[in-house]
Design a protein around this nucleic acid. Structure first.
Length: 484
RNA sequence: GGGAGCGUGGCGCAGUUGGUAGCGCAGGGGCCUUUUAAGCCUUUGGUCGUGGGUUCGAGUCCCACCGCUCCCA
């Protein structure tokens, strides 16, 4: 570091500008590769480019230097010859350190060994890298640093950069998909006086001027459905939700969720929509609809996904019928599988545990589980054929829940009843039960048309599409304990 | 909450039964006009996560704490 700082000082002393104001690259590394990859070994061109990026590798060869320039698109070898840049130019290139940001000008060529390169005739330091970069071959391995100092991870580990580029394209593709179908993107409050729309504990905060307790939202659901009442017909929001819960390979306390609501649709329509959305997004973010997952092998996202009722799935994997079994029988099935259901006080929670324990890990290929118990779904519409279940589905892949959807309950009296059941559950010790939202009931009293709704986690989908095992590897700055 | 493992120079890693810390990369100096993690010669960096303890002596053994990873509830 001292040495690199000294170079900066010497440069300033000699009248150079160590921190130039701007740069003017004309191309990315990948552009040069795309234009000239067909060159014969040893061939040179007159095609000039100006590139900017970080110098990542250097191989000195006496009066020749090979270096590797990395930009967002990829890398390109630089071919620096003393006979081209002269003694001074060569010396100043030799003075650069790994990690320095540089701007280089030159012509496309291919070396005798067949490596496409830029034959450099001009170099300019754009910004000095004062600290040495992580090791060039193994990259940055230490998880603590990879996540805590993501910028270093992105510099040192190309794979990591690729994941986040894919995630960005994914979000963009989701927007396009929904806009093509006439959905309006909206923004609803992050700070909410009453939180709802999911079974979770909230983060609590306080507004000084209003002297009011506010919660960071755990879902966007109830606000978005108010917009359906208002006549917006098709809305979606891409937003951060906050849940004050444990951190695991699939949970981060703040995460990105998409919720969408479509008037005049039901959960079958929403299944079709999600089934079309996922391959559309996969194609445009990772370039394929067949994912190779590190733990589960090939996962095919296109085609029609199986629909299985939750009852059938639990019956097959857990050997217990949630339609007829008593609570004790459900509990016994869990105990037999070595799971202690002591914290699961309600029937809904027991069924949820059966799903998590027996069914979810085996759902590798995309699958819809449909028709959930009413206790677990206070905002979903009751099934006409069976009052114990609602018209709801969850989508799974890679042994993980991706999304959750239902035909929305729009009967205000029934909704109020469901809120009251939730209040009982809370009184019985369920601290994840829904809070009564009177204004939401009032909104329903003004009339919400038949509506289908869907929520899915952007982070989970990013994990699936990029084959990452941990949600922390698809979140740029995941939550972590920091030094006090 | 329970269990297992990890923490050693900027980065990636070694460190035998406790005996005074090594290797590779990066950095410095030198050689080299076709390298691909270039190579060769040479050289500078570390009170081994923190705090106690055992011992003549601790990176190594014991205790506590901090942080991370994985598995389980």
């Amino acid at each position: 570091m001292d040495d690199r700082r000294a170079k900066l000082a010497a440069m300033a002393e000699a009248g150079g500008e160590p921190w130039p104001y701007s740069a003017s690259p004309t191309a990315h590394a990948a552009d040069v590769v795309a234009a000239h990859s067909g060159l014969e070994d040893g061939a040179e061109t007159e095609d000039r480019y100006v590139l900017a990026g970080r110098m990542m590798l250097r191989r000195g060869q006496g009066k020749l230097i090979f270096a590797e320039l990395a930009d967002r698109s990829g890398t390109l070898q630089l071919f620096v010859s003393k006979s081209v840049v002269g003694d001074d130019g060569f010396a100043s290139f030799d003075d650069l350190d790994l990690g320095d940001w540089i701007e280089v000008a030159g012509t496309a060529m291919k070396t005798r060994k067949g490596e496409l390169s830029l034959k450099v005739d001009g170099v300019r330091l754009l910004a000095k890298c004062i600290r040495p970069l992580p090791e060039k071959f193994h990259g940055l391995v230490d998880e603590e640093q990879r996540r805590g100092r993501r910028y270093l991870d992105l510099v040192a580990n190309r794979d990591s950069l690729d994941v986040f580029v894919a995630r960005s394209k994914m979000v963009s593709a989701i927007r396009r998909f929904l806009e093509e179908r006439d959905f309006l993107e909206v923004e609803t409050p992050v700070l909410q006086p009453i939180y709802g729309g999911a079974a979770a504990r909230p983060f609590v905060t306080h507004h000084n001027e209003l002297d009011m307790r506010l919660y960071l939202r755990i879902a966007t659901e109830l606000y978005l459905k108010r917009l359906i009442v208002g006549g917006m017909e098709r809305v979606f929001e891409i937003g951060t939700n906050f849940r004050n819960e444990g951190i695991s390979f699939k949970h981060n306390p703040e995460f990105t969720m998409i919720e969408l609501y479509q008037a005049y649709a039901d959960y079958d329509d929403v299944m079709d929509l999600f089934e079309a959305l996922v391959p559309y997004v996969a194609e445009r973010s990772v370039g394929t609809t067949t994912i190779t997952h590190p733990d589960h092998g090939e996962i095919r996202l296109d085609g029609r996904w199986p629909r299985i009722t939750l009852r059938d799935a639990i019956l097959e994997q857990g050997k217990v019928d949630i339609d007829s079994a008593s609570d004790d029988e459900l509990r016994a099935a869990l105990v037999a599988a070595g799971y202690d259901p002591k914290g699961d006080t309600t029937r809904g929670k027991l069924i949820d545990a059966l799903l998590t324990k027996f069914v979810e890990p085996g759902l590798i290929q995309p699958t819809f589980l449909i028709d959930y118990p009413v206790e677990l779904s206070p905002f979903a519409r009751t099934h006409a054929d069976n009052p114990k279940v609602v018209r709801r589905f969850e989508a799974f892949a890679a042994g993980m829940e991706l999304g959750n959807a239902f035909s929305e309950l729009n009967d205000p009296a029934l909704q109020l009843e469901r809120f009251q059941q939730q209040a009982q559950a809370r009184a019985a010790g369920d601290d994840e039960a829904e809070q009564l939202d009177e204004d939401y009931v009032t909104a329903l009293e003004y009339g919400m048309p038949p509506t289908g709704g869907l929520g899915f986690g952007v982070d989970r989908l990013a994990m699936l599409l990029t084959g990452q095992r941990s949600v922390r590897d698809v979140i740029l700055f995941p939550a972590r304990r920091t030094k006090a």
